[in-house]
Structures are given as structure tokens and as C-alpha cells.
């Protein structure tokens, strides 16, 4: 199994150059059955990465470009009157797919954003009173521009909490940028990437991740971290219990990637900032963001012996 993952990693790293850790976290997110949020400036390769992931994992893929006039029905689909059958027939929207790429999610109005909510949390949508199951595995990759850009509606906290991992790609290393400029656009490569996995195999992997053991000592450590966020004066509020579960999930997935069947504190530390950063809101006058505070908390919390 892990060899396949290594191959996937390899492919992805060929497409998105010099972003090994981000690629790894994206895979962790997928294995932990979480949704992924990629936040960065336009043109940093967000869409390319999202695209490549869905291709490589061999998943059915739909892309929704979010704009300010996008309506909920555009995502979920609507029932349309069929003249021949004299009845309404349901036309599923792009959400009925295994991977949704929600591009520039914060350009849509909150109403539309929240249409994604139910789908993401419950893996189902309710249209005109009828609840429909979404395919499995179901995975939302959203990209967004930094909130201070013009024409954005910042995602509500409730929705941010539903993303397991937030990644930020950042500018590439000059060396990689040079090779990127030499070899031309990678988007085509992403589109032509071969699937390395079937969805059954992915589900099997996700099951194995579930089985990873989390010992009491790890839970103690995790609780210490969570409680520390609640006590920190630099944060508006601390982490929710759901965030605690999310860290556990991600840590398990990371441990599985490391070919271990148990979680060690380093796993928690590795995923902590990515999982927690977007859920924390730094308070008032401090010039810090959630990631900085999460990093500081990590550095100041002792690992139980």
C-alpha cells in the first residue's frame, strides 16, 4: 500500500515542484477523510495541485468555479420538469462527485458557501425535501484567496472548522521556479496524470488509517495542547472538541504514512499547525495569526514522558 502512496507522492511532486511537505499534508488530509483548503495568492499552483490530486487518486472529479453570482442550486442541482414523463426529474449538480474542486470558494456569497456545509459534514445533500447520499469517498478541495483581497467573502468560522487541513503553498524556491519556467506550464501534466489507485483501494487505506492506535499518553498530550489554546490570551477562543478529533485523525493518517501502526507525539506535532491554524483567531492588537500562535503553543508544551 505504502509503495503506491510513494508513487503518488512522486507524481504529485513532479507536477507541483518543491512542495513536498504540502503534498504530504494533502495526502494526509485525504487519508483522514478530511476536506482540504488551500489558501494562497492567485497563480501559486493551487488549482494545479487540486487537479493533480484528484487525477492521481483515480477519483471522479468535478470542478466548481465560485463566483459572486453562483447560487446553491448551481452546486447541488435542481429538479426540472420533464415534458415527456410529465414529472420533475432531478438533475444532479456538480457536487455529486467524489472530488469537488471548489475554486476560489471565498468569491461566492455566504449563502452559496453554506450550501457546501451540509455536503461536507454529512456527505449528503437535501434538495426539495429529499436527502440524497453523496458518493464515497467524498472529498472537497477548496482554494481561496487571502481574505484581504478585493471581492472576497471570508469563510465563516463554522465552515473553516469543517476543513481538516489548510495549506498555503507560498512562492516556490527560485531553483524550482527556474525549472518551471524552463519546462512550461504543468497544468497539462496534471490533466494527463495517470490514476495510481482505485477508489476501493483508497477506501481500504482510509480504513487502515482508522485502525491506527492512539494511546492514552498521546491523548494526554493532545489535550494539553488543546487546553493551552483555550487558555492563551492571544486567541479569541480555543479549539473545539471537533478540532481535537481532527488532529487525532490527521495524526493517525500521518503515522500510517510513516508505516507505523501507532501514533507518536511527533505525528501530532507534524500535523498540528496545518490542522489547527485556520481554526484559531488571534486576538486584537497582536500582529500574529493562528499559525504563529499554534506554533508557539507547540513549542511551549511539554511532551509527556
Amino acid at each position: 500500500m505504502q509503495q503506491r502512496i510513494d508513487a503518488i507522492k512522486q507524481t504529485l511532486n513532479n507536477i507541483v515542484l518543491g512542495k513536498e511537505s504540502q503534498v504530504e499534508m494533502a495526502i494526509v488530509c485525504l487519508l483522514a477523510k478530511g476536506h482540504l483548503l488551500i489558501e494562497d495568492l492567485p497563480g501559486m499552483g493551487k488549482t494545479t495541485l487540486a487537479h493533480a490530486i484528484s487525477r492521481v487518486f483515480g477519483l471522479e472529479f468535478q470542478r466548481i468555479q465560485f463566483t459572486s453570482d453562483l447560487l446553491p442550486a448551481d452546486i447541488t442541482g435542481t429538479a426540472i420538469f420533464d415534458r415527456n414523463q410529465q414529472a420533475f426529474s432531478f438533475h444532479p449538480g456538480p457536487i455529486f462527485s467524489q472530488v469537488i474542486l471548489a475554486d476560489e470558494i471565498n468569491r461566492a456569497t455566504p449563502k452559496t458557501q453554506s450550501a457546501l456545509l451540509e455536503a461536507m459534514e454529512e456527505h449528503q445533500v437535501t434538495i426539495e425535501g429529499e436527502t440524497r447520499k453523496l458518493p464515497s469517498p467524498f472529498f472537497v478541495i477548496a482554494t481561496q484567496n487571502p481574505a484581504h483581497q478585493i471581492g472576497t467573502y471570508p469563510l465563516p468560522e463554522s465552515q473553516l472548522d469543517r476543513f481538516l487541513v489548510r495549506l498555503s503553498l507560498g512562492y516556490p524556491h527560485p531553483e524550482f521556479e527556474k525549472s518551471l519556467l524552463l519546462s512550461g506550464e504543468k497544468r497539462a501534466m496534471a490533466n494527463s496524470a495517470k490514476p495510481q489507485l482505485t477508489s476501493e483501494q483508497l477506501i481500504e487505506m482510509q480504513y487502515q488509517v482508522e485502525q491506527i492506535n492512539v494511546s492514552e499518553s498521546i491523548v494526554d498530550y493532545l489535550l494539553k495542547l488543546v487546553i493551552e489554546t483555550r487558555r492563551s490570551p492571544d486567541l479569541v477562543h480555543g479549539l473545539s472538541p471537533r478540532a481535537g478529533l481532527a488532529i487525532t485523525q490527521a495524526a493517525k493518517a500521518y503515522a500510517w504514512l510513516q508505516q507505523r501502526d501507532f501514533v507518536i507525539p511527533e505525528d501530532v506535532q507534524h500535523v498540528f499547525v496545518s490542522v489547527v491554524g485556520h481554526r484559531l483567531q488571534a486576538s486584537g492588537q497582536s500582529q500574529l495569526n493562528g499559525d504563529d500562535v499554534a506554533e508557539a503553543i507547540l513549542q511551549n508544551t511539554a511532551v509527556p514522558l
Partner: peptide
């Protein structure tokens, strides 16, 4: 574990509080 850590500390390698055993 603590005994090992003490022995290592005597040799001049100290564990940072936020370091796990593996690291």
C-alpha cells in the same frame, strides 16, 4: 525513560520539552 534522559543529559545532550522520543 527519565533515567535514560538523565544519562544523556550528563553527556551533554538535553531533550527539549517539546521533543518527542523519536525526534
Amino acid at each position: 525513560y527519565q533515567r535514560v534522559l538523565k544519562r544523556l543529559a550528563k553527556k551533554g545532550v538535553k531533550k527539549r520539552v517539546d521533543e518527542g522520543a523519536q525526534q
